[in-house]
Simulated assay, not measured.
Amino acid sequence: MRTLRKSGLVLASAVIGLTGVVAGAGTGSAEPRSPFAAQGRHAGLTPAQISGLQKEVDAFIKTSGGKQVALNRVSLSGHSAVTLTAPGESRVRDLAGTKTAKFTPGNCGDKNFCAYQGRNYTGYEFTMWACKVWELPGDGWGRGGSWFNNQSRGTRAVMYGKHMQKVYTTPPAPFGDPHGDWRPVWFIKNC
């Protein structure tokens, strides 16, 4: 199992941020070569948005590992995933059309703990469903952020700092915080 490293993810965040700006800027008429391009077309994305999103996913995988499982989703170790926002959008959405459950704030499915890069459940979504300690993908998230604990009723998550010192214990699920702060958080034990 690969452990995420903060230094690589900071670079990935910078690269992703730059490609996201460039991706949304062009009109592009060339057909994207992504094996997931049909998902983007079905979701109403332009060829330039599809191509830009694929570049963001490629950059994320290069620095963080994982396997692309949808146009905007990377599986990390099979028990967690990061979903990226489409160019020009603030919230993640299921471009693969595979989720059928009723969703809570953001896109956090049943029995998951979800961390969002931005406030109000916006930005990249880090979804954890296996019970373990997870490293937050990159200290590039910095200020702001949000989270939603949609695990089994009553389950609490614990957030830890860089040296595994306890920073915060969440209220029992289901519960979320649309105005969190990722600065002191490096790890999350979701259960």
Rank of each mutant, 00 (worst) to 15 (best):
S80Y: 01
A48P: 02
Q39N: 07
S77R: 15
K111C: 05
P32K: 01
S77W: 07
T85A: 04
N107G: 14
A43F: 06
A30L: 07
P105R: 00
G118R: 15
D94Y: 13
I50L: 11
E56M: 15
Q39Y: 03
A25C: 04
P47A: 08
N72I: 01
A25H: 05
A25Q: 07
P87R: 14
A59P: 03
T27I: 10
G44M: 09
L84P: 00
L95H: 10
V92D: 11
N107Y: 15
S51P: 06
F36P: 05
V69L: 00
G28V: 12
T85N: 04
G40H: 08
Q49H: 05
N112Y: 14
A101K: 15
G40V: 01
Q54V: 02
G78Q: 13
T100M: 09
G44L: 08
F113T: 00
L84W: 04
K102C: 10
T83I: 15
R119I: 15
G118D: 14
Q39G: 06
C108M: 05
A81L: 07
F103K: 13
K99N: 12
D110M: 13
V92Q: 11
S75G: 03
A115T: 05
K99G: 11
G52C: 05
E56Y: 13
S75A: 10
S77H: 07
G88W: 00
A115L: 11
G66K: 03
K55R: 15
R93P: 01
Q117I: 14
A25M: 05
R91N: 09
A59F: 09
E89D: 12
S75H: 00
K62N: 05
A48Q: 02
L45H: 02
A96E: 12
S80W: 00
K62F: 13
S34F: 09
Q117N: 12
K62D: 12
T104R: 00
A23R: 10
G65N: 08
K102G: 07
S90Q: 13
C108G: 12
Y116D: 08
N107S: 14
G109Q: 03
G78E: 09
G106T: 01
T100N: 06
R41D: 03
E56P: 11
F36H: 03
P32F: 12
G118Q: 15
T63K: 12
A81F: 13
T98F: 07
E31P: 02
L95N: 09
L45E: 12
C108W: 04
T98I: 07
R73L: 06
N120V: 00
Q68L: 13
K99Q: 14
R93N: 06
G24I: 10
R73N: 04
S75V: 05
F36W: 04
S29Q: 09
D110C: 09
T98C: 05
T27H: 08
S64P: 00
V69F: 01
S90L: 03
A37W: 03
H79S: 13
G44A: 12
H79Q: 11
V57I: 14
S90R: 04
C108E: 08
Q117G: 15
G118P: 02
P105T: 02
C114T: 09
L45S: 03
A115K: 12
K67W: 07
T83P: 02
S34D: 09
P105E: 10
R41G: 06
